[in-house]
Structures are given as C-alpha cells and as structure tokens.
Design a protein around this nucleic acid. Structure first.
Length: 828
RNA sequence: GCCGGAGUGGCGGAAUGGCAGACGCGGGGGCCUUAAAAGCCCCGGGGUCGCAAGGCCCGUGUGGGUUCGAGUCCCACCUCCGGCACCA
C-alpha cells in the first residue's frame, strides 16, 4: 500500500485532466479522424460493471488512436428521458427532472472516477430542451414530407407502463421494459414511416461489412421481406372479393379452403346471413384468445366454418371460407388461401376438420397423394392437378402464375414485410412533446419552428392516476392555431425515447449548435462513426431506428452518408453468480467499491483482461488480484531503477549490447508489435493485457543481468519506458505517475507522447528453435541462426541423434522444412 | 423447427494449418520472517517407466475424412448459449 497509493495517484491525475482539459477536442483537418463511440447510458442512478466494461473498451481504443496521432472524438452523454424517472417521481413525490439530474451527477462522478478520456464539454443530456428541440424540429420536417403521420390503428398498450409501445418494443406480446402482457387497443397515434426505407435498410446491409453477422441477421428477420403475390378470390353472393397474400402462388390449385383471421373486417358481415349463433360465438371466442399465446403459436389450431364459399380464380373451384385462429390480421391481408398438401399449418388444420388435401407439387419419385400424406410436402417439384399449368417447375410457375393473375386483373406479384411503421406516441410526461396542435377549424397543425422548443411544463402533477400528467396542465394544453389563430388544443403525447438515441451521435459533433440539430460541417468531419461499442440487446431497436433516422437526415440534405456506423462491436455481457448483471436483477457490482479497494487502473485492467471483449465475462473477486499485483510489481520496479534510468533519457542506444540486453530489446519490440495489432486490428484487449504482463515478467527476469551493466541499462530503460507507455491507455493514472519518475523534470505528460513503433530489425529473433517431427511426433529440437537456409536446416535436423535413432533402418519419404517453425520428417 | 455462436487444465482463457495450454486465478513446494501477511523463486493436462536426468503412451465434446502435420479445414453427430419462430 505504501508503494502504490492508487487513490492519491488517481485523484491527482483526474484533477489534472479536468483542469487542463486534456481530452477536449476540436476538429483538426490536418490529422486523420477517429470517431469512437459507446452507447449513451440511461441515468438510472449507478454505473455498474457492465457499463465499465463497455467504456473501458472504447477508452483504450480512443487513447491508443490519440497517441497514434488521430484526431479522436470519444464523447459521452445521457439518454435522460424515459419512464423510470416518471415512475420514481410518482413513487417519491419528486420531479422526474430532479431525479434524473441527480442521477446524472452521481453517475458522472463514477465515470470520472474511472479515468475515462471524455471531452466533458461535449456532454449532452437528451432531457435538455436544447436537445429535444431538435427532435421536434426533425419531426416537423418529417411531418411536412409525410414521414410522420397520425392514424387510428390497433396498437400495443402496456397496462403497467400506461402507454402504447412500438412493435419492436412489444416483441412476443411482452413489454420490453416491464415484461407485462401487452393489450391490443384501437387508438389514434403518431407513426414514422420507416417502411418507406425497408428495402434500403435491407440492401444497405451489404455495405455493413464490419457489423457482426448476427446483428444483420436479426435485422433481416425483423424486416422480414417476403416476396409473393396478392390474389383476389370472388365470394359467392358478394361484390367484394377477398384478397389473400401468398408466397406460393404455384400451389394455388391446391387451395382447398380460405382462412380469415378472427379480426378480419369481413368476418361479421359474411356470417351474418348464414351462420348460427353457435358459429358466431365460436368466432368471438377465437377473437378473445390470449393474443400473446396466439402470436407465439402456443394455442392449438382452431377454426370455424363461415357458411360461405369463395371461387378460386385459377380453376374456378368453389371452396369453403373458414375463420382460423392462427391467421394473423397484422400480417399480409389477414386472409390466406390454405394449401394443406404443401403447408404444414394448413395441413394440420385440414386433418383436424377433415378438409380436402390435394397435391399440386410432385417431386421426383413416387406420386404423392393427399389422402395418405402424414405431413405437408414443402420441397421442390413440378405442378400437377393444376390444369394448364401442369408440368411447370414450381419456381417458374410462381412468376408465370403471378403474371397471369395480373394480366387477368385478379392479382399481382407483391412483396410483404414484417416491419411495421414506428409508433412513436407515448402517453407519458417525461419525453419530447410532439410539436402539433389540434384546431377545430384547421385540423392537425405542426407548430412553427419559431415556437420551438415546446418545453415540458415543470408544474405537472405526478399522481400515478388518470393518464398523462400533461393533460392536466391547462397552460400547456391551451394553444393557438398557427393557421387561423383560433383556439387549439396541444398534443399531449410525447415521443418514444428511442427517438432521442436515434441521432444523439450527430449532436456530439456540435453539442451547442443552435442553428439546427447539428453543424453539418462538424458532422462531415467526424462521420461516419469508426467504432461503435454497446450491448447486443439493441440489435433491432436502437440500431435499426438510428439507421432509419440517418437516411431521413440524408434525404433532408443534412448528412451525406446513408449509414452512420462503420464498425459495430457488441461487447459481451457481465455475469455474476450465473446471471446477467443488471439493475433489474439486483445483482450489480458498484465500481466505486472496487475502486476503493484496488483502484480504477486495476479495475480497468481486470475487466479487459478476464475475457475477450465480445464474450460474456464472469465477474470474480479473486481474478482481480492478478492485474493488481501486476501494477504493484511495476510500481516497485520503477521505484528501484528510476534514479539510475532517468539520466539515460535522450541518449542513444549503445551499439554494443550483451546477448541478454539484445534479448530484452527484442522482446520489447515484439510486445509493441503485438499490442498495437491486438488493439487496433483485432480489438483483442485481453491478449494485449496478457502481452503487457508478459513483457513485465521478461523485464523482471532480465533485471539482475542488466542493472549493473552500463550498456544493458539502456535496454532496461527502453523496456521499462515502453511498458509504461504501452500500458498507459489501459491504466492511465499509475503510468503517468511512473512516467514522471522516469523522465527528466519538465517532460510533458505521457498521454501526449507518440505511440511507440516496433523496429522490425530489433524484434527479429537471432536464433530460432525448431521442433523436429518424425512421422508427426516431436522427437527433437534444434537451434539454428535466423535465416539459415532450408538445406542447412534439413541437414541439421537429420543429423540430430534422436532423429537418427528414430529413422534408423527406415526410408525417408519426405522432409518438410518450415522456416522459423519446424522440420517434419516422414519415414516408412 | 430455422438461423447464428461456442465446446481446450481445478477455473478465466491463449494459439496466420506447424512444438496445445500464452497470460492470469486458485493449488503445491521453497526462500524471507520469532510467526503470519505481503513479497521473491520454483512446480503445475492425464497416465506410465525410472533413484534421477529423462523416456514412452494418451489428450482440445463424439465419430469419420483431408494433410508430412488438424484445437484450427471438410462431413456426420452430441451438448450448451443467443436470436427468430403458426409471418401464409
């Protein structure tokens, strides 16, 4: 402890960085730029080890890039609007803003205690009116272009959060935040037309070559592009046909019934004249079935015959119309043609209700029969039982039959998507007010830009009862119509907080800019984001919304890139006691506690060292001792030699060095090469830390031989100084302290030095040890000078006594020499 | 079911097709100490032979294959983790 007073050291350097604005940054066109970003945290109250892990990765990369001469932007801010603040306000009788600001203050302190290299003057909080002003401004641009629109639609209502949610936030019928079961409600809501960009969102993924496959796959699944066709089936006795969507028009002659979703708008009218009360009651029951279970496919397939029939336009066949509980109104047209022979769901339904099964796709091999099938056949084949289409290959038939339908006017090739427009209305206070008013005469009107920002009124009542607090603030609700000047009612819905995080990374480029969401010149300098590190849980939420938002900004002419992020790196979760560490699980470790015992430098090293950054990390109290001991050893090493090594600064390396000194120099330069590559190419920070520890071990091993050798001391100094420098991005405080001891007075701080470059000539091995294998087994080792010719290596290997013994009396079939690696002798 | 990713010492984890287990934790032994802690040094996959030095055999989930050589590449399978899943 007396050797290494980490608390004093860390406090001292943090203060200095703060006072001197060390990490403040401005655009500098003379240097290559590097935008290194982490996902901004929600100010829940405390930083936990998961955050620390995320930010340590970006901090090391930022610091290394900075030392390598890059103009680095590595900012931080707060995703500060959202429900927890409002819930806390209701529970404790405070204001959401009070709660949020105090959380930000304490989390900021915790981040500063970690020594992260943020330019704090660029800090943003999305609850600042200066920030959400630009949510409103961009919304108005979207409104002008029809990207933002208001519509009555069945929406996801979370009864516990008392608000609606977007589809992405209600996956599987469960609220993403509180896990409550979602209810369906018919409501007038604001949407953003993300579906305008669905193809572009999909196609541009081809350019995202530095995004992990699994994120792209998730986004692809979510967008769910599905090429197929619409076909209209005439209904006997009705004018209006029923439109179905299918991906398998080729099987249409095998359609033996139609199925409608229980919510389908035609169901009631179709059944009115023919069906009995019993059938109507059955449909009502299907309708009422638990929506979540139905969505998740956990309900047995059930159906009701409507009593009506439709006509297949391809073969004129009259087929029954049923209602089926597994047909979803939210996808396609809410009506399907059932082809039980070639679709497993239809097959199960047909068998249950004893409906006709007709094979229309016949693969090579014995003829299939609808009567004997035990499951559907969904593979390739040729068309049968399909009249004029018989004999066509199924793939070709899809195109031809869709074209036929279009020519005859009863259908069309079409593409259906799973992606729905982004519902951004929230019936809560602590979000961005949607900048529109309702006028009895003029209708829905966007407020003029000059009235922005529409600020949240500070005096709203947080009772937890009776809906959105904004509705109760008369001064807020009462507005003037921008068109006619008459009285109007202000919108009280606020925006989804994912709006805030969809573009915050642009704001960092010019956080105080008042002329727009950001200064286009600053964005042009910094964008695209070179490295974005965060949790994988945002794969289809934040990461798809922000891609969308960027494309809108591009269409507004504000940015030039269609994609914001070049390299996406989802870091692994932190686990503790077998569970993901998270505030909701209540199993978090507070970094401050660890800092108090070991210091921030140790904690930083530990989270980086314990696992590769993309893998999950199991927190362990024992493992942290290793990095701590490593730092202690280094502090003592420098303490022993600083006075002797300091005067050597600036003097040239002696030409004549002992073998031990050359060896240490070699290892030093190998470490430079290894660590540089691990950090900037592979992001393998765990092996970079291992290499730092290894160099430290090597220095300690060489110490006795070199400390009393006047020339050797130069190699020792080079190794120690280099280790301190290479370690700086990982353990920035203690290394500054050691740097000060090692350098003459007046030398600037370590953080401003240039990252070392490995000298390949010094790093090269003088002699190499090669393994000699005989028939694949290592039987001997030989030591040869580096660069020895293959022929000489071969001779040396074959002369080795152990090898001679192994190959005695056998024929040498082959000798493979891999320079620098091994010799492989094959005998028989 | 479909799509990803992963299976390596007691543990976390290393290894451009080339000496498996870097680095660290825990463990064992020794030095230092009156003693302990800390620190320092050494050992450390399993089996087997040997007093020892050392030798031999087996070993990266399982079974095959390619190769002079496979943790790494190919095929089949098992297990675990993540994502999607009645999307027509």
């Amino acid at each position: 402890m007396s050797d290494y007073d980490f608390e004093a050291i860390e406090t001292r350097w943090q203060k200095r960085w703060h006072d001197e604005g060390t990490f403040e940054v401005r655009e500098d066109a003379s240097r290559p730029k590097f935008y290194c970003l982490e996902m901004l945290p929600y100010p829940s109250g405390d930083i936990h080890v998961g955050h620390v892990r995320n930010y340590c990765i970006t901090d090391v990369v930022s610091r290394v890039k900075r030392m390598q001469g890059f103009n680095v932007l590595h900012p931080i801010g707060w995703d500060a609007l959202g429900l927890p603040a409002e819930n806390a306000a209701i529970k404790r009788g405070t204001h959401p803003e009070t709660w949020t600001r105090s959380n930000i203050a304490s989390m900021k302190q915790q981040l500063q205690r970690m020594g992260f290299s943020y330019p704090w003057s660029r800090e943003i909080a999305t609850c600042d009116a200066d920030y959400y002003h630009w949510n409103q401004w961009t919304f108005l641009r979207m409104l002008e272009r029809g990207i933002a629109y208001r519509q009555k639609a069945p929406v996801n209502w979370c009864p516990s959060c008392q608000t609606v949610l977007a589809n992405e936030q209600a996956e599987g019928g469960i609220c993403w935040r509180c896990k409550s079961a979602i209810q369906e409600r018919e409501m007038d809501q604001w949407f953003l037309r993300i579906t305008n960009y669905q193809d572009e969102l999909l196609d541009d993924m081809n350019g995202l070559t530095e995004w992990p496959e699994r994120v792209l796959v998730q986004q692809k699944n979510w967008i769910g592009r599905s090429p197929g066709a619409h076909v209209d089936f005439a209904v006997a006795g009705e004018k209006e046909p029923i439109r179905v969507f299918t991906t398998r028009v080729d099987t249409i002659c095998g359609a033996t019934f139609l199925l409608l979703a229980p919510e389908h708008p035609r169901v009631e009218a179709l059944m009115a004249s023919v069906a009995g009360d019993e059938a109507r009651a059955a449909v009502a029951r299907l309708h009422r079935q638990d929506r979540r279970a139905r969505l998740a496919g956990q309900v047995e397939k059930e159906g009701v015959f409507t009593g009506r029939h439709a006509v297949n336009p391809f073969n004129g066949e009259r087929i029954p119309i049923w209602v089926g509980n597994f047909v979803l109104m939210g996808y396609g047209t809410g009506a399907i043609m059932s082809v039980p022979a070639h679709d497993q769901r239809d097959f199960e339904f047909a068998r249950k209700y004893d409906l006709n099964v007709r094979v229309v796709i016949q693969p090579d091999g014995p003829a299939l029969s609808g009567d004997t099938l035990t499951e559907c056949y969904s593979g390739p084949g040729k068309l049968v039982n399909s009249g004029e289409w018989n004999g066509l290959d199924w793939e070709a038939a899809k195109d031809k039959m869709a074209a036929h339908a279009e020519a005859k006017g009863f259908g069309k090739a079409t593409v259906t998507y799973r992606l729905k427009d982004w519902l951004i209305s929230r019936q809560r206070y602590w979000g961005t007010p949607i900048p529109v008013v309702y006028c009895d005469k003029c209708g829905v009107k966007g407020v003029p830009d000059s009235e922005l920002p529409i600020k949240l009124p500070p005096d709203a009542p947080f009772t937890g009862e009776g809906g959105n607090p904004l509705e109760k603030v008369e001064s807020f609700v009462k507005a003037k119509c921008p068109s006619c000047g008459g009285p109007a009612r202000r919108e009280t819905d606020t925006m989804d907080t994912f709006v805030d995080s969809s573009w915050y990374f642009y704001r960092y480029c010019s956080p105080k800019y008042a002329g727009g969401p950001f200064d286009p010149k600053a964005v042009a300098h910094w964008f695209p984001i070179d490295l974005y590190v965060g949790g994988i849980e945002h794969a289809i939420l934040h990461l798809i919304y922000s891609r969308f938002w960027t494309k809108v900004l591009r269409d507004l002419g504000l940015v030039k890139d269609a994609e914001p992020v070049t390299r996406l790196f989802p870091q692994g979760m932190v686990h503790w006691k077998g569970e993901v560490m998270s505030k909701s699980k209540g199993n978090t470790i507070a970094p401050d506690d660890v800092n108090a015992r070991y210091g921030a430098d140790t904690l930083r090293l530990y989270v980086l060292f314990a696992a590769p950054p993309e893998m999950s990390l199991e927190w362990s109290e024992e493992g942290i001792e290793g990095p701590h001991r490593f730092l202690l050893r280094l502090v003592r090493l420098v303490g022993r030699h600083a006075d002797v090594l300091r005067p050597l600064a600036g003097q040239p390396m002696p030409a004549e060095l002992s073998a031990a000194a050359r060896d240490l120099r070699r290892r030093t330069h190998q470490a430079i090469a290894k660590i540089s590559e691990d950090v900037s190419e592979r992001l393998q920070l765990n092996t970079a830390v291992a290499a730092l520890m290894k160099l430290s071990n090597e220095i300690h091993a060489a110490e006795p031989a070199l400390q009393d050798d006047p020339a050797g001391r130069f190699a020792l100094r080079e190794a120690v100084v280099t280790l301190v420098q290479l370690l700086n991005p990982f353990a920035p405080h203690v290394t500054e302290e050691l740097w000060e001891k090692l350098q003459p007075a007046g030398t600037g701080p370590l953080v401003d030095t240039r990252w070392p470059v490995a000298d390949a000539a010094v790093a090269r091995e003088e002699t190499v040890e090669l393994a000699v294998q005989v028939n694949g087994k290592v039987r001997a080792r030989i030591s040869v000078a580096a660069g020895t010719a293959e022929e000489a290596i071969r001779a040396a290997a074959l002369a080795e006594p152990k090898v001679v013994e192994q190959i005695a009396g056998k024929e040498i079939v082959k000798v493979v020499v891999v320079p620098g690696r091994l010799v492989s002798v094959v005998v028989k």
